[in-house]
Amino acid sequence: MLHIVNKSPYQTRNLESCLRLAKAGSAILLIEDGVYAATRDNIAAAGVKAALGSVSVYALSPDVEARGVNNLLLDGVKLVDYGGFVDLVAEHANTQSWL
């Protein structure tokens, strides 16, 4: 399953819920303000870091660049462009958007 999170981890608890309910082997794609969760040295990083052992975490690069956080990304988070976004959706049997 592909999970998509688009809210800042500081504004809602969507990411926490997603991390709690994402099965091992699933993928999480961070988009829009969700990409802030892909940055390091912050209070959201621990949860994402812990999840990296069992799930793949992706961040949408145009959203990362827009927010100026390219240099602050956590190791292990993979960047994808819009084409990569489409590929992820196509590769997974189903998708859940944590709106």
Partner: peptide, 21 residues
């Protein structure tokens, strides 16, 4: 305050999302 500090982060480049920086 809170996520407002992100407004001031330098190096923002919004071409890819087609929104004014």
């Amino acid at each position: 305050v809170d996520d407002g500090v992100y407004e001031l982060v330098k190096g923002q480049a919004t071409k890819g999302i087609d929104v004014k920086n």
